[in-house]
């Protein structure tokens, strides 16, 4: 288990609990009263800390090293029927973007999402969830495949941004993202997009145009990361907390600004505390939303999808 700086009180209590358990085990004395008291204390502490998170702390939770990633959700949502499909048919297979068919409650679904690595080695392998153009093109290929066979699409978004490398520029990172956004307005099957961790800018939006766009509770979605925003507008990396507040990037702010359609609650203390439960909550929401979307005619769905994004913007006329 990893702990964030503000989770320190929880870590100390967990440590105490572990000690109490060991003592009970070693001495044979009944310690159940102490342990259950400690367990309650942990629960309360978690509740208190997570009830008062700042925007920056939520950003930290969205990047928690124990937080579940896309493939975890694909497997649980599909009752382990998910089969990954690879490649963009042009350049290569991007490991930061994954996708494939699976069955959600027995019904076929195309799952697509950015994937981060679960340890140091895998983080490199997954390029920290930063897709190259071929990742976006793979995602689009899979979306069109799903459309062809009338299979709805679920996109799980979790990226610190599209990869800003030389080869990415050569292969048209901008065009790849633009093309995806554009084509997602033409896709006739239902699309549900969920931010499950980080929703950084164009890299997130590249698989983020949906009939329903939802955010899990402790995630963020904005035009730039708080760190980069701090470095550009304040000319220093030290204002990330301030930038996180100013950008209004939390799920509550995004819903209040009508830029997303809903928030999916997480287990007390964040998805990393109980990844299984987090996935079950997500599964239930996706199931309900898909059932509603399937009832709408394709042309109507596209019209509503366009109207929704068209309404976004604040100006004086």
């Amino acid at each position: 288990m990893n702990y964030l700086d503000f989770e320190e009180p929880i870590r100390l209590l967990e440590e105490e609990l572990e000690k109490a358990r060991q003592i009970a085990e070693n001495t044979g004395i009944d310690g159940s009263a102490t342990t259950s008291e400690l367990e309650q204390k942990i629960k309360n502490t978690r509740k208190e800390i997570y009830g008062n998170l700042t925007a920056w702390q939520k950003v930290q939770v969205s990047r928690h090293p124990d937080r579940p990633y896309a493939l975890h959700y694909f497997n649980i949502l599909s009752d382990n029927t998910f089969i990954e499909l690879h490649g963009d048919r042009t350049v290569k297979d991007d490991k930061a973007m994954v996708g494939g068919f699976g069955k959600l409650n027995g019904e076929p679904v195309m799952f697509i999402g950015q994937q981060k690595g679960i340890n140091a080695k895998m983080r490199m392998y997954r390029n920290f969830g930063m897709a190259n153009p071929e990742g976006y093109r793979k995602a689009l290929r899979l979306m069109k495949l799903a459309e062809k066979f009338n299979v709805p699409i679920v996109c799980l978004i979790d990226t610190p941004g599209a990869y800003p490398g030389i080869e990415a520029e050569e292969r048209g990172q901008g065009e790849a993202i633009a093309r995806n956004i554009y084509e997602m307005f033409n896709i006739t099957v239902p699309i549900i997009c969920v931010i499950i961790g980080e929703g950084a800018s164009g890299g997130a939006l590249g698989i983020g145009v949906g009939d329903k766009v939802l955010m899990m509770q402790y995630t963020w979605y904005s035009v730039i990361s708080p760190e980069s925003c701090s470095s550009i507008l304040w000319r220093s990396w030290d204002f990330k907390e301030k930038a996180a507040e100013a950008l209004k990037l939390t799920s509550e702010d995004m819903l209040a600004n009508k830029l997303i359609d809903g928030i999916i609650p997480e287990p007390e203390g964040g998805a990393h505390v109980n990844p299984e439960e987090a996935a079950q909550i997500l599964k239930q929401t996706v199931t309900e939303q898909l059932a509603k979307l399937k009832k709408i005619k394709p042309e109507k769905r596209i019209e509503q999808r366009i109207k929704k994004f068209e309404a976004m913007g604040v100006f004086e006329d």
Partner: peptide
């Protein structure tokens, strides 16, 4: 690029303009 001071509102202009281009 996008205007940072409008946060995700700026980001969504990418979607809004692309949506109109499909029409």
């Amino acid at each position: 690029g996008a205007r940072m001071m409008e946060g995700a509102f700026s980001l969504m202009q990418m979607a809004k303009t692309s949506a109109k281009l499909t029409q």
